[in-house]
Design a protein around this nucleic acid. Structure first.
Lengths: 349, 349
DNA sequence: TTGAAAGCGATACCAA
DNA sequence: TTGGTATCGCTTTCAA
């Protein structure tokens, strides 16, 4: 196994100089550096991560904490985004999944104990309760939240502007002429917080702002179909309920695309025409949304993760960051699942 | 920063004993071990990964090498599968993406240089050419292939039985009464090998086995629509070609679900009824397949990755493995995109 | 700009 | 079953 020492000898310099040259510190004379680099190349040498880490205290290891599997639209996008900015700087981006952590405690204990071993943490969709928060802040390890609103224990955070998103959805529906609108919640299967949970509230707020009467706005809560298994069954029930109601909304905003698409299908099975009878708006713009012609509020988690990763990188380098809280806007992608309501059409016909 | 030494002192033992106890080596008296464990707990202590790695030579770091983004159906599943078996043993599973590596050389050089820093490698969908192969075998680091047929430089591999898969597809189509069948290739956007590439050949073989005449089997090669951007355009062209042909196949096997679904949509836009006019079979059973009612050959990459990871774990532990080559079977999932051909139906009507 | 030497925090060998 | 000690390969003062 070739070591830094071998390289130094071959280049006729001291270990320290070789180390400096290889790491790109600019206190090395160009000539010397070149000599060392070529020695290193000819020996196929690369620094030992563990030795470097041990000596410097920097582990070049960033933890990405998930509450759901990695092969999920959002999680995978986070990994990709973080990878894109962190990998080039030599950071390992290490996924960690919290399984049964109903109590975030176990998790924070683990983190606490890992103190030596982590340079930074990215927390996608994590809710911080006061207890774990203390732990986190005692960590002294840069931590940035992703899809989380800012908390004092976070050094920075990148969050989706769900409020504006809901506002634009409601505005769009009003513009189309809808007078009875609804919001469908999604059961949170993630053990942590997802900012999606706050969308319902913002939807109501927005409806109020745009002068919808309380009676004309209906929220279908997640509790109604809280299941671990398939969404088909509960959403089919919901569809039946909606289809058979007289004063059903003519437009539905659904917490995310996955549920929106299933609901759309279930409604169609009942003979409900979309968008003629009911317009549907999803959230995310995942791969299926385009396929199904679903109008949706598009978010780009890869992009968000890149921003979070860049913030973390700055933090780890000790650089100042511009602002602690970064808000990301969604954009409304209009497709075939929305239109003016039937009444409106008839009237204008 | 608390160290092993602090724990040892608190427990009144030597560093060595503390180390042994904490790592679970069974040459420590239970009483002693307990004492040490509680000392460690009270200090919120965890071993330093870098120090352990440096001293032991084991880095607890496994590289997963990709030729495509992580937020991809297959890649994300590989990560998840590997995570499920490797994480509990304390391994970091670190994704590495090869971007421009048209020449695998750069990549293998990097690997070679990382010798110190890696305990094991999982190679999903990697093609090994003879040049890089030498490099790999000189690595002396356990390497297992995933979705790759066995190569002498791999210590083990897990592969999809594409041959059987194609056979079952052809058999199924024959059973349905199809007499003209076709296979649609997919442009490989991965810089590496995907076993998908061999499916076309196996399809032809299977057709021969089942006595399809050469004239009744058509392969639509990937070259026809080799693009980097969207698949829509080339597949719409292909759809037009098929729709306007007199002796078009009545059943199409498509290299993967993604392409199958797009093709299906393009055909429908042209008025082609599926499955009445043309039956379609995909491959993968990704999330969209069920949504679109696509008959497909289901593979489970999470499962495959778990097997690969287990093999790697055994290899890294120095345990013997049962066999170097593990074949995984696909299963045919029948949905609404396939049926008997129209002629058959008319005949039987 | 370069070199010498003291750690970094564990593991593993050899003794006891 | 436990302890003493050399060692892993690099970074980082401090001096020159």
């Amino acid at each position: 196994m070739t070591t830094l020492h071998d390289v130094a000898q071959l280049a006729n310099v001291s270990d320290s100089t070789a180390s400096r040259a290889l790491r790109g510190l600019d206190i090395v004379r160009p000539k010397t550096r070149a000599k060392i680099k070529s020695a290193a190349d000819s020996l196929h040498f690369e620094l030992s991560r563990s030795a470097s880490a041990l000596a410097s205290g920097r582990t070049m290891r960033v933890i990405m904490l998930f509450g759901s599997p990695l092969n999920t639209w959002f999680s995978a996008a986070c990994m990709q985004g973080a990878y894109e900015v962190l990998a080039e700087s030599g950071y390992d981006i290490v996924p960690v999944i919290l399984k049964d952590a109903t109590n975030a405690n176990e998790f924070f204990n683990t983190l606490l104990k890992n103190k030596h071993n982590i340079d930074g943490i990215i927390l996608p969709s994590i809710r911080l309760d006061s207890h774990s928060s203390e732990d986190l802040s005692s960590l002294k390890i840069p931590t940035v939240g992703l899809d989380a609103s800012f908390s004092p224990v976070l050094n920075a955070s990148v969050a989706l502007d769900n409020k504006s998103a809901m506002r634009s959805a409601v505005y769009y529906l009003q513009e189309l002429g809808h007078e009875r609108i609804g919001y469908v919640q999604y059961p949170n299967r993630n053990i942590f917080f997802s900012s999606a949970e706050e969308r319902g509230t913002f939807f109501l707020q927005a409806a109020k702002e745009y002068d919808f009467s309380q009676a004309s706005v209906h929220v279908y809560p997640a509790k109604d179909y809280e299941v671990n298994s398939s969404l088909e069954e509960p959403l089919s029930q919901l569809a039946r309920r909606i289809a058979s109601s007289d004063a059903a909304p003519t437009a539905l905003c659904v917490e995310n695309d996955e549920a929106a698409i299933i609901l759309m299908r279930q409604l169609r099975l009942l003979g409900v025409k979309i968008p003629e009878d009911i317009s549907i708006i999803g959230f995310d713009d995942n791969d299926n949304a385009e396929l199904m012609g679903l109008t949706t509020l598009k978010q780009d988690p890869v992009h968000m993760a890149k921003i979070a990763a860049q913030l973390l990188k700055d933090l780890m380098a000790g650089n100042p960051i511009e602002r602690k809280q970064t808000w990301i806007q969604t954009s409304l992608v209009k497709r075939e699942s929305t239109s003016s309501p039937r009444s409106e059409r008839t009237a204008s016909a």
